[in-house]
Every structure is written in structure tokens, then in C-alpha cells.
Amino acid sequence: MEAFKMTQDLTSTVTLNNGVAMPIFGLGVWQADNASAENAVYAALKHGYRMIDTAKQYGNETGVGRGIARALQDGLITRDQLFVTSKVANGDHGYAQTTAKIEGTLHRLQLDYLDLYLIHWPVDGLYVETWRALEDLYKAGKVRVIGVSNFDVHRLQVLLRQGNIVPAVNQVEFNPQMQEQEMRAFAKQHGIQVEGWSPLGHGSAMGDPVIGAIAAAHKKTPAQVILRFDVQSGVITIPKTVHEQRLVENADIWDFALSDIEMAAIAGLDKNERSLWYPAFGWYGSDTDFGMATQKWPDSPADYDA
């Protein structure tokens, strides 16, 4: 994995540990229904985005696929310019399940391959087997890059010991108040690129006076300063929105840079506190309500058309 370089625009990339170039900024679509996801994806690609992040768990792969198909048909982008991520749902863990269920994801997305496929949550007792399935999907050309999401250092160590391929990406919560210092240091040591979901901390950091003062100095919004901090920290960043104006604003972070002093000031806001609900999920076992719900989800594309 190459060292992070100062970024210039939405086409900027970082080279992963298998040599694939991944955009450092993209669109997340968590909590969007299919119609909203379709429109957001189309608008994002129209405005220069090149990376879209979804998951079977989100229930909107069909909408994302429609947005991509429209953009391709209208000539906004070509497939080789696009980087699409999806994730293995909790109920799809295990070698046979993972190997089979990717076909539903590809069908819903209207794609022949994924650019990045992640284990969404480390379901204990199954994630090593699931990782072996991802390794074989990678070798078969179904995916260009494989990685994980929401893995701590211990579970990354397990994969490094028992797997054959080092994960290229670990997608975790990253924002000024949750900076994953231990995991990021471990990832850097082993050539694993960190990608950050909830880069704005669910809005919790935008009212901080440190952020506000830096935003005023640069004539930017607090959100733009936070997103610049995320990217400048070397973290691939995927803010979620379904509003066209907001996705344009989110991407307007390439005409300024934070100084070392400003970066240090924002780094000092780290509370090691997660902004969202998932601590109640424990370490993501399939015996929780969340895990059981995903196991019940069908795979027919029609079942994702709500």
C-alpha cells in the first residue's frame, strides 16, 4: 500500500496492497431506500463521484444498481472508471453461503463483478470460513479487492494467522470523536487501508468550537472541514446522503488543506466514542436480533424493490 498523498479531486486514489487503485472519497447509501439510492447514485456520478458503497444489509442494492445502470447508459461514466463496494450480510456467513450469495448482490447491482467485497461484521465462529470464501471469489475474478468491516485488532490478527490473503481494507467508524488509533496503527503496519464510515460522526462533532474556528478560517462549513480531516488523515471517506446539494457540498474539499496545527487540534477531539447504535450489538454474533433479521432476508431482486 502506497503512502497517502495530498488529494486533488474526486478522481484521486490510493493504491491498495494488491495494486488496485481505490478512490479516496465516495458516496455511502446506508438508510436510503431503493428509489432514494438510485437518484443519489445517479446524481453522485453526474457530479464526478467514482466510488459507491452499499451492502446487502442496507436493502438498497437494487436501487444502487439502477442508478449505476442509468449513469452508464447516459454516458456519465464507464464501468472501468467506477468503484463499487458491497458487503457480506451476517446471515450469509460461511463458505458455501458466501460463495453462493454474491450472485444475488451482483444481480441486484446489475454488475458482472464487484470492485470491493467486505465482510460486513465479524460474526464470531464463522468469519474465518467466510474469509476463505472471499479469497476464492477473488481468485475467480468475481471481485477485484477483498476486505473486512468493523474488525478490531484481535479479529484482524486471526485473519492474518488463518487466511492466505491480507485484507486490503478495513472499513470502520472514523470521525474526529472516534479515530480508531490502535486499529489504524495495526492496519498501517500490515498494509491494510482504513476506510471510514460515519465520517461526520452522525453530526456530533460539527458543533465543536475547534471545528467551527477552523471552518471560519478557511471559509468552509464544519462538515467540509471534518471531511477534509478524514481524507487528510489517510482514511478513505464515504459520507452518506441522498440530497444532491449535500453531496456536492461534501465533495467541495479539494481547494484547501488543513495545516499540521489544525490537524493536531482536530485529532485532539478524539474521545474513542462510537456515534451510532452498534455497541449494543456486542461483537456481532448471529444470535442477536440484528443478526437474526439479516438471516431472514430473501435474495430475490424483487424483494429489494420497496
Rank of each mutant, 00 (worst) to 15 (best):
R184W: 06
I226G: 01
D124K: 15
D287W: 13
K296N: 12
A140D: 11
S275G: 12
G65F: 00
H218M: 05
D53H: 00
I24E: 06
N18I: 02
R70E: 05
I68E: 00
G285I: 05
Q8V: 15
L76A: 10
W30M: 07
V88T: 04
K142S: 06
V158A: 05
A293W: 13
N272A: 14
L10D: 07
Y49T: 00
P122W: 01
G234C: 10
L269C: 04
R274T: 05
V166T: 15
Y284P: 03
Q177M: 14
G212H: 07
H107G: 07
T98W: 01
T13C: 13
P222T: 10
P209E: 09
R132M: 09
D80K: 14
E180K: 08
L27K: 00
Y138C: 02
A265E: 13
Q181G: 06
I226E: 04
P301Q: 05
N90S: 11
G291M: 10
N150T: 08
S86L: 00
L258W: 05
Y95V: 09
A69E: 15
Q57W: 09
S204K: 13
T7P: 12
A280P: 00
L82M: 11
Q232G: 08
S300F: 09
A302Y: 15
D53Q: 01
E180V: 05
P301I: 00
K240F: 02
H120C: 04
N18T: 11
